[in-house]
Design a protein around this nucleic acid. Structure first.
Lengths: 124, 124
DNA sequence: TCAATATTTCAACATCAATTGAATTATTGT
DNA sequence: ACAATAATTCAATTGATGTTGAAATATTGA
């Protein structure tokens, strides 16, 4: 479970335009991920050193993972960490005021239509 | 619905230790909120100018709201914005890979036990 | 082994963000 | 109107962060 220091690192990573775009790109790309070069292309051709700086920032914050594949390094979103971060943000929000927290969870759930019949997947 | 610029402001606000603590304090405090002074006390007696700096940062980012009450200014968490931010983080995460997203939503929902029987509240 | 590709590392520079303390504004009670 | 309380604003300083370009490392194919 996420602690304050981890959350601070994660939020710092996400507060930078290029990094936020990288994360969203990787979230959409799914578990297979994308190479550093491909990500750089997508960030209107950012320099490789700039990419490397931001990617290692994100990796240090635990928001992405990397693996080597040939000469490329493939980055992918750390979905569990993103989920944890979202949970951290809402932690303790229901203390006597469920009417305040429930719409938040509802909004999030509605983005994930597969959630309804996916209890089996959630257990895995 | 949250856009990229708003999300960047929000994440920048949350990436600072004092501000993250303020938000969590206000989330726990609930809709009634707390005065700037009371928040300052809780932040191991931070100076008023420092509090003012961080509180206006958070307010500008839309994460807290303020109202005057006598000589005090009362700050409270902007629950809808926090929910939106969490949703933004997970947006598009299900594109063909529900097994990746669903645990995230499940983790969040489990933090909010009242969520189960609270469909009426969510509609309000 | 050599050249080509992919990425990282490093130092220098430029920008941006947080803290401090003093001065200012707003509200209340006498 | 005055003193007391509550909070904000401002300028100065300090520290952290992002960008650039050149050099270094790792991997592959000829």
């Amino acid at each position: 479970m996420m602690n304050e220091a981890q959350a601070l690192d994660a939020f710092a990573s996400l507060s930078q335009e290029t990094r936020l775009r990288i994360v969203r790109l990787l979230v959409i790309a799914g578990p297979d991920g994308l190479s550093a070069g491909a990500i750089g292309q997508a960030m209107d051709g950012a320099s490789s050193s700039r990419m490397s700086f931001h990617l290692s920032h994100l990796e240090h914050a635990g928001l992405v993972a990397s693996r080597r594949e040939g000469r490329s390094i493939i980055y992918s979103a750390a979905f569990a960490a993103l989920a944890d971060l979202a949970a951290f943000l809402m932690r303790d929000c229901c203390q006597g005021h469920p009417e305040v927290c429930v719409p938040a969870v509802a909004a999030l759930s509605s983005r994930c239509r597969s959630g309804v019949g996916a209890k089996r997947a959630a257990r895995a």
